[in-house]
C-alpha cells in the first residue's frame, strides 16, 4: 500500500459487497420466491434486481431480499417495494426486463412504474 488513495479504493470496492450484512438501504425490494414464484420465473427476476442495484451503484440505498408466497399466485412473479413513509408498491408478472426498468425508474429516480403494478393488471 503506497498511498491512502489505494486503501480508499479497496474500501469503496468492498463496502458495496459488505453492505448486504448491515441491513442497510432504506428501500426494500422483496421478491416472492415460493414454489409458484419460482416456477413463474422469479429467480432470474431476483438475480436481475441484485445485479441492477449493484450496477447502478444503489447498494447503500436498496436491499434485495426474498419472501414466500404472498397469495396471488396467478400474478407471479410478484415483487414488492417498501420505502419508509410511502405506500408499498406491488409489481406483478415481472421479468428481468421489467426488473431493469423498475430499478432505473423507481429505485433510482423515485417514480414507480405504474403499468407493471397490480392496479394496472386487474
Amino acid at each position: 500500500m503506497k498511498s491512502l488513495e489505494e486503501l480508499a479504493a479497496i474500501r469503496e470496492k468492498m463496502a458495496s459487497r459488505l453492505a448486504l450484512r448491515e441491513n442497510a438501504g432504506e428501500i426494500r425490494i422483496v421478491v416472492g420466491m415460493a414454489t409458484c414464484g419460482i416456477s413463474a420465473g422469479a429467480r432470474p427476476v431476483l438475480n436481475t434486481f441484485v445485479e441492477e442495484v449493484a450496477n447502478q451503484g444503489l447498494t447503500g440505498k436498496a436491499v434485495v431480499t426474498q419472501t414466500g408466497c404472498i397469495g396471488i399466485c396467478q400474478f407471479e412473479p410478484v415483487v414488492e417495494v417498501f420505502e419508509p413513509g410511502k405506500e408499498k408498491v406491488t409489481y406483478v408478472k415481472m421479468n428481468p426486463e421489467k426488473a431493469r426498468k423498475v430499478v432505473e425508474q423507481h429505485i433510482k429516480n423515485g417514480n414507480p412504474v405504474a403499468e407493471y403494478t397490480i392496479g394496472s393488471n386487474q
Binding site: 500500500m1 486503501l7 479497496i10 474500501r11 470496492k13 468492498m14 463496502a15 459487497r17 459488505l18
Partner: peptide
C-alpha cells in the same frame, strides 16, 4: 484483509 479494510481497516 479486504473485508477488514471495508470496515475502515488500516485507515
Amino acid at each position: 484483509i479486504e473485508e477488514y479494510i471495508a470496515m475502515r481497516g488500516y485507515e
